[in-house]
């Protein structure tokens, strides 16, 4: 019986080892077949996502010239969503030739930005051209976007003592003679700065410039300020203008409704760390009374203990 069993066991072992060999062989074969594919850097089956680029020009209030990029890619649901970590090449046109000036990587929101130099190569019409490209990105399909804009100047003026609170924005561009020359019919938008963005000052906050390149707006008096001094930062913007891109300018005045400081942000309340006095008083009286009674009882017991000696 025992020997028989042993033989059976051995047979089983033999069988399993044979099986293992077979699987090993198959696995090796699969690995060998797959190896060339694995070695390819950008495998064909790892589909690249369809991508799109947005390129815009922004001249900030400090006169710095910037470009802003937004990269989007089609996601699993088929929608265009922000594409992070896309590698972007930025080119500038100089003498009819595209020169690579920088490579950028998009952030989590699919955004990237860079500051441009002050003197840019311009063409005859005083325009300069920028191009952004996605090239050879492992995750996104190639895409490119071009931009051709002209520099302009926007100034926002206000008189802090003005009771009518008139905001005046002036838009000029450099004329052929190098002198500033007013820009007409440019749409200037007036905003106040808020914590997370720019809020329109009122209902009709878009004003077109007149022949002198001026746009004016009377600031409403009910805009709350974010501090107790009533400071407001007003921003005038020409937004996504075909010729000039986006141009910003800002100015400050104490024209806001001052912030009413909360007298006691942490009052004694049920939701607060500190309990209302009435509650403390109630607990102190009730439980103080009970515990005093306990101590009286304990005191009596001590007396009981001491009285034993009398006997």
């Amino acid at each position: 019986m025992e020997t028989n069993n042993r033989i059976n066991v051995e047979r089983v072992e033999h069988k399993t080892s044979e099986k293992m060999k077979k699987t090993n062989f198959i696995l090796t074969a699969i690995l060998l077949i797959c190896l060339p594919f694995l070695l390819v850097k950008n495998p064909v089956w790892a589909q690249k996502k369809e991508s799109s680029l947005q390129l815009s020009f922004l001249k900030k209030a400090d006169q710095s010239k910037n470009i802003l990029l937004t990269v989007k890619a089609r996601n699993e649901a088929g929608k265009f969503a922000p594409a992070p970590n896309a590698s972007l090449s930025i080119f500038i046109k100089s003498n009819e030739e595209w020169l690579l000036i920088k490579t950028l990587i998009s952030d989590l929101g699919g955004k990237a930005s860079m500051k441009l130099a002050d003197d840019l190569p311009m063409d005859n019409e005083k325009y300069f051209s920028i191009m952004a490209k996605i090239e050879n990105d492992s995750r996104y399909e190639d895409a490119e976007e071009e931009l051709r804009v002209k520099e302009s100047r926007l100034t926002l003026l206000l008189d802090p003592t003005d009771t009518n609170r008139i905001l005046t924005a002036t838009v000029t561009q450099t004329g052929n003679d190098g002198e500033p020359m007013p820009v007409q019919e440019a749409e200037v938008k007036f905003y106040v700065e808020r914590l997370f963005g720019k809020m329109p000052v009122g209902e009709e906050f878009v004003v077109a410039t007149d022949a002198a390149g001026k746009a004016t707006y009377a600031l409403p008096k009910n805009i709350p300020s974010s501090d107790t001094l009533g400071n407001l930062t007003i921003v005038a913007v020409i937004e996504n203008n075909e010729t000039f891109g986006t141009v910003e300018s800002n100015a400050s005045a104490k024209w806001g409704v001052p912030l009413q400081w909360e007298k006691d942000p942490f009052p004694r309340a049920l939701w607060e760390p500190r309990a209302p006095p009435a509650m403390i008083l109630f607990f102190a009286i009730v439980f103080g009374g009970i515990w005093l009674t306990y101590f009286f009882v304990i005191f009596q017991l001590i007396k009981v203990h001491s009285e034993t000696k009398i006997k």
Partner: peptide, 15 residues
């Protein structure tokens, strides 16, 4: 956004 500023902003940058 901040209620004291009476302003709210969304992902499109609109305030």
């Amino acid at each position: 956004g901040d209620q004291n500023e009476d302003a709210v902003t969304n992902s499109e940058g609109i305030t």
